[in-house]
């Protein structure tokens, strides 16, 4: 790993930024990163990148170490409670041991069917989330820009938003032709509201002086929207999308518990029906992981569009 990394530092290419420094790199040469002799171009680029990476690692390492300690404590408590079958108000008698959950997990990692569950869930999320993203940004923009639009749409948003996903299940089953469609619909609903509301706020907060500036520079209403209002709202839209992604997992699980034959929610619920307790926890943790990864993915994909924000001090 370290040997593979070293020549890359010398090139200091843009791909390097994504590569975390090996822990052994930093202390060498009295705590300073290795100075790279460069015959052409600015000589300090390699050093600067290496230093930045060392800094990144230091700030990250703290969180990583403390986070791991926290998790270890949690796991230890879980082990202690379950192993002793503590039954004091909360009953740990039926909670499987961490080891059993891990064993179940490794079993499933080898199992093709487990990946089908994941794939089906991911596809449902993708469909529901994408529709919600497009429609949510559209509705939010209309609400943020037009008083009429806001007055017309707001009652729907306000009334429908507090309804939990589970409450939609009966109606969704009645309304949509297939189980698949009703699950995607419920997923879509979960993602929709955070996107609409955040987009609306972002669009409302687009600075008026920038709109005026664009007008005086000859921009048409469409150009003002595309080049001023939309980019101004983008940080809020991204937040809405990230929150919406989390909520859509939440809703998906509700939908999958009631209907469907595949999906990580079905897997979890099915494990309960089959009295396979370790699998319940495997399903839960995998859902959490998928939710986290997909939310980070949303933020990561939006990153290039928001790079101007990081430059602000």
């Amino acid at each position: 790993m370290q040997d593979a990394l070293k020549p890359q530092v010398a090139y200091a290419g843009p791909t390097l930024v994504a590569v975390p420094p090996a822990p052994g790199e930093t202390p060498r040469g009295g705590g300073r990163p290795p100075v790279v002799e460069d015959r052409e171009g600015p000589p300090s680029v390699g050093v600067v990148v290496a230093q930045a990476m060392a800094g990144w690692f230091q700030t990250r390492a703290y969180g990583l170490v403390v986070g791991c300690i926290g998790l270890a404590i949690g796991l230890g408590l879980w082990q202690l409670m379950s192993a002793n079958k503590v039954n004091f108000f909360i009953n740990f008698a039926n909670v499987p041991l961490p080891g059993a959950v891990f064993a179940a997990f490794t079993d499933h990692v080898m199992d093709r069917e487990f990946y089908i569950h994941i794939e089906v869930s991911v596809l449902r999320i993708a469909a529901g989330f994408c529709i919600a993203a497009v429609l949510g940004v559209l509705l939010g923009t209309v609400m943020g820009r037009s008083r009429f639009g806001a007055a017309l749409i707001a009652p729907y948003i306000e009334i429908l938003r507090p309804i939990p996903a589970v409450a939609w299940i009966p109606l969704a089953i009645l309304m949509w032709p297939t189980d698949e469609a009703s699950i995607v619909f419920i997923t879509f609903l979960g993602a929709l509201f955070p996107v609409v509301i955040n987009t609306m706020h972002g669009v409302e907060q687009a600075p008026e002086v920038l709109v005026r500036a664009a007008k005086s520079l000859g921009a048409s209403p469409l150009q003002i929207f595309a080049q001023v209002i939309f980019p101004a709202a983008l940080p809020n839209i991204v937040t809405g999308l990230a929150v919406g992604m989390g909520v859509s997992w939440f809703s998906l699980l509700a939908g999958e518990i009631i209907s469907g034959q595949y999906g990580i929610g079905y897997f979890t619920w099915n494990a309960y029906s089959l009295v396979n307790y370790p699998d319940i926890i495997v399903g839960m943790l995998v859902t959490g992981l998928l939710g986290t990864v997909s939310t980070s993915l949303v933020r990561l994909l939006a990153q290039p569009l928001l790079k101007w924000q990081r430059k602000a001090r």
Binding site: P207, V209, L210, R212, A213, A214, V228, L234, W308
Partner: peptide, 9 residues
């Protein structure tokens, strides 16, 4: 304008 009115993005 008085306030900074450049497009930050």
């Amino acid at each position: 304008f008085q306030q900074y009115s450049l497009f930050p993005w």
